[in-house]
């Protein structure tokens, strides 16, 4: 793509994107660390994750500020406009992810109260979710529509696995009523992970909007693919 005639505008757009990418990095790290703290009963690490959520929130505010001033002062159009719009949405998703990671970290502070909780399947789910977050952010960084489509497609597997964990967890609770409090914790954590996965999907959809200008929310995957490939016109 050609350079902007107005260099400062170009710089501001680049800065907006890099800030968003680094916010994504922080969120990704928060999710990974909160899970690590959970699995290792590491209260210190959990506290750190909770503290770092403030940095994520601050970044959200900062990026919002930037998008507002870009809209007001530069009147972006076309791809620039779509970048700004996508960023506004992505930042909200990222902030929610940060909150969800914080929620997991809060459970990590209390996880020693549930020594018998079955958390192996949570680890597998979190690996998948982390992969989703990472690929969504990569798609954003490199404007990679195919990676974004793949991420959306992959979410089905996460949902499937989340259902499996839910059933498994329910079985444990039915077997042993004393497990119910542990089971509820596992249910809450898995719910958080599944929601993080949903936000990764939202981010991917915004990446597709940003690059192609098509809104693929609420359409089935096959239609989305045809839209992206340009086979299908938006009307």
């Amino acid at each position: 793509m050609n350079q902007h005639t107005f260099k400062r505008f170009e710089d501001e757009l680049n800065l907006l994107k890099s800030k968003t990418v680094s916010m994504g990095g922080l969120v990704e790290k928060a999710v990974r660390r909160s899970m690590k703290a959970l699995m290792n009963y590491d209260q210190k690490r959990a506290t750190k994750v909770i503290e770092r959520d403030r940095a994520i929130n601050a970044l959200e505010v900062e990026i919002d500020e930037m998008t507002r001033s870009l809209l007001a002062l530069r009147q972006p159009a076309a791809s620039d406009l779509r970048l700004v719009i996508a960023t506004i949405k992505i930042v909200t998703d990222l902030e929610r992810c940060g909150d969800l990671a914080e929620g997991i970290a809060e459970y990590a502070l209390k996880v020693h109260e549930h020594p018998h909780a079955h958390m192996d399947s949570l680890e597998v789910l979190s690996d998948r979710v982390l992969q989703q977050v990472k690929s969504a952010l990569d798609a954003f960084t490199y404007d990679d529509v195919n990676a974004a489509l793949q991420t959306i497609e992959n979410d089905k597997r996460i949902n499937k696995q989340y259902k499996a964990i839910e059933r498994e967890n329910l079985t444990y609770m039915l077997e042993d009523p004393r497990y119910i409090s542990s089971g509820m914790m596992v249910a809450a954590i898995s719910k958080n992970l599944e929601r993080i996965g949903d936000h990764a999907v939202n981010i991917s959809e915004m990446v597709i909007y940003k690059v192609k200008g098509h809104d693929v929310r609420h359409v089935d995957h096959a239609t989305a693919e045809r839209l992206v490939s340009g086979e299908l016109d938006a009307e």
Binding site: M1, N2, Q3, H4, T5, F6, F9, P76, A77, A78, S79, D80, L81, R82, K212, G213, H214, A234
Partner: peptide, 19 residues
């Protein structure tokens, strides 16, 4: 045209990239 121009030349013009 102003949100999703089809042609790169239109895109460049309306976003202020002209080179």
């Amino acid at each position: 045209v102003f949100t999703t121009p089809r042609d790169q030349r239109t895109e460049d013009y309306i976003t202020g990239r002209f080179g």
